Simulated assay, not measured.
Amino acid sequence: MILSMTGFGRSEGVFEGKKITLDLKSLNSKSFDLNIKMPVRYKEKEFEIRKILNERILRGKVDCYINLETLNDTAEAHINHELVRTYMNELKNLAADGPDFEYLKMAVRMPDVISTKQEELGEEEWLFLQKLVDEALGKFEDFRQTEGQILHEELKRNIHNIETYLTMVQPYEGVRLEAVKERYLSTLKEFKQIDETRFYQEMAYYTEKLDISEEKVRLTQHLKYYTEVMKNENNNGKKLGFISQEIGREINTLGSKANHAEIQKLVVMMKDDLEKIKEQTLNVL
């Protein structure tokens, strides 16, 4: 089954006056590359969150954003009086003139003067956050599946196109050999003596050289295998990439042996569909 590496999922909820929003989004990547941005409050749980996401997402360039908004301003503010006095004294020493109020306004803007005390992360809040992670992952996986169905249809259409072009090659195979034979015969007629044995040896050599039956068989097998893997195997993106490379090799060999304008045109159309397959396969999980 095809799953897209592109995904998006969002969940949000309110826990004891705090609104928590979690966004997940991913693009294609050769491995699992996770970037997490979260409030300091949840930093201690980053490892567990990474583990959960890795087990479910598997592969892709993933961004996870956790936003925390306090709906009820219940945090206790603490002013460091001693630090304020120290800042004010230092400011006075730098500039002796001026009212104390002005120094006070400057001092309270200094680092670490005002701090807020937050409660420690409790087990219930952590369980609530885990629930949001699971909910976002569920939506994320649904998105991947929907995108995967679209990818599947596009890939199936491109594979079918290559199969169709391959069947269109057959009528030209005999024509090109006859063309080679006639060209050799017309050339040999210019000579008084014709060595028929040598003529047929040359024809046998060129027939073997131009034979594309093996390439056609292998290409047909690769196309069939690609379809089977796409339909029946999970997390098959890398495998499909390898098969598409083999399809490319057979198409290239077929083109180098073609020796016929119409076959070359069909090969070009096969390559066009193959490039689409390769591009789309990069986004398969």
Rank of each mutant, 00 (worst) to 15 (best):
Q245T: 06
R198N: 10
K181C: 00
N234A: 11
Q221C: 14
E233R: 10
Q221T: 14
R176C: 00
Q245I: 00
V217H: 10
E208D: 13
Y225P: 02
I212F: 12
Q201Y: 08
R183M: 05
Q221E: 11
M230A: 06
F191P: 02
T220I: 10
D211L: 01
K209A: 07
V180Q: 08
K209P: 05
E196A: 13
L223V: 02
I243M: 00
D195W: 03
R183E: 02
N235P: 04
L223T: 09
G174W: 06
Q245N: 07
G248H: 01
V217K: 06
Q245P: 00
E182L: 11
N232R: 02
S186T: 11
E228K: 14
F199S: 10
K181E: 13
Q193H: 08
M203W: 06
Y205N: 11
K192E: 14
Y200P: 06
E233S: 07
E228T: 13
H222D: 00
K192C: 01
I194D: 11
T197L: 15
H222M: 06
R218M: 13
E173Q: 00
E196S: 12
M230E: 02
Y226V: 01
I212N: 03
Y225H: 15
Y205A: 12
Y226R: 04
A204L: 06
V217R: 12
K231T: 12
A179F: 04
Y184H: 09
E190R: 11
Q245S: 02
K181R: 14
I212D: 07
M203H: 06
F242V: 08
Y225Q: 06
E202R: 15
T227D: 15
Q193G: 00
Y206H: 10
K216H: 08
F199T: 07
F191D: 01
L177P: 05
K239H: 01
Q193S: 09
S186R: 10
F191S: 03
I212L: 14
I243G: 00
K181T: 01
G237E: 04
Q201T: 05
E182S: 09
Y225I: 06
T220H: 04
T207Y: 11
T220M: 04
V175Y: 10
K231D: 05
Y184L: 13
V175W: 03
K192T: 06
F199K: 14
R198K: 15
D195C: 04
V180D: 02
K239F: 05
G248F: 03
H222K: 01
Y206M: 15
Y205H: 12
